[in-house]
């Protein structure tokens, strides 16, 4: 933690995070969160201390600290906390206080790419469509899947599904499982050709505005393609 050694009592402001509805002030410092957390100890990360920092109003220290970014947001702590403190949500809120250009590299870059290009990889539309069609052709060669194609932007389909960027990058094999199931179930489905990113890294960077944009795009697809059901595996 990049905290100073000495913090003077008169620098504490217990009211600083008062408006945050995560009950952080109810912490009884039992330590159940820290005992249960899978990330406790990484760079000294200690969820109990982090929650105490919020209660004490140590804004600069907690925002500058690496701890909120070590947390995996798995919420195991929340699950055991006897005081019902929304620890993971509080951590996410702390993340939102960082200058955006100080958000750790990979999630920051991925999100920026997604906002600008519709996916975390900056993958051009042609390349994306090429990959999908290539995978569909491989499936069509399997017995029982003759004539299989990928229905892109199909208006009026029953299910819309999004794509995790790794499925058109390093894990194309994993696309096939879903698609085979759709085929076997005779499902009427579709994928979008643009803004197809299923992950929403704005969740991890604590950026609510960006999260809204990413989610809004999926909703737009559903309206435009007149699809009622969303399958969002991410």
């Amino acid at each position: 933690m990049a905290a100073r050694d000495i913090i003077h009592m008169n620098e504490l402001d217990h009211t600083r995070f008062k408006s945050w509805g995560f009950s952080q002030d109810f912490c009884v410092t039992c330590g159940l969160c820290s005992s249960s957390c899978p990330a406790t100890g990484i760079d000294g990360f200690d969820p109990r201390k982090l929650i105490r920092m919020l209660s004490l109003g140590l804004e600069n220290e907690v925002v500058a600290s690496r701890w909120p970014w070590i947390c995996t947001l798995c919420a195991k702590c929340e699950n055991v906390c006897p005081m019902e403190i929304d620890i993971a949500d509080a951590v996410r809120r702390v993340r939102s206080l960082r200058d955006r250009d100080k958000v750790p590299g990979i999630i920051h870059k991925g999100l920026e790419a997604a906002l600008e290009t519709g996916n975390n990889l900056r993958l051009p539309k042609d390349d994306y469509v090429f990959i999908l069609e290539d995978v569909a052709e491989e499936i069509a060669e399997e017995p029982g899947y003759e004539g299989f194609t990928v229905p892109i932007d199909k208006k009026g389909a029953n299910i819309l599904t999004t794509i995790h960027n790794k499925l058109v990058n390093t894990h194309t094999e994993d696309l096939k499982h879903w698609w085979r199931i759709f085929h076997a179930a005779k499902e009427d489905w579709t994928v979008p050709s643009e803004n197809w990113e299923g992950t929403n890294w704005a969740y991890f960077t604590g950026d609510d505005e960006a999260m809204k944009i990413m989610t809004g795009r999926i909703v737009d697809h559903m309206h435009k393609l007149e699809v009622k059901t969303l399958m969002w595996p991410e």
Binding site: C30, S34, S35, G44, K49, V80
Partner: peptide, 28 residues
């Protein structure tokens, strides 16, 4: 030890493995 433990699992010999925060090292 000023922390309430998290998980308990049974291990060999009827013993119980307890996971807890160690305040001194700030590690579980």
């Amino acid at each position: 030890i000023r922390a309430i433990p998290g998980d308990i699992y049974p291990v060999a010999g009827d013993r119980l493995q307890v996971t807890f925060l160690d305040n001194v090292s700030s590690e579980t």
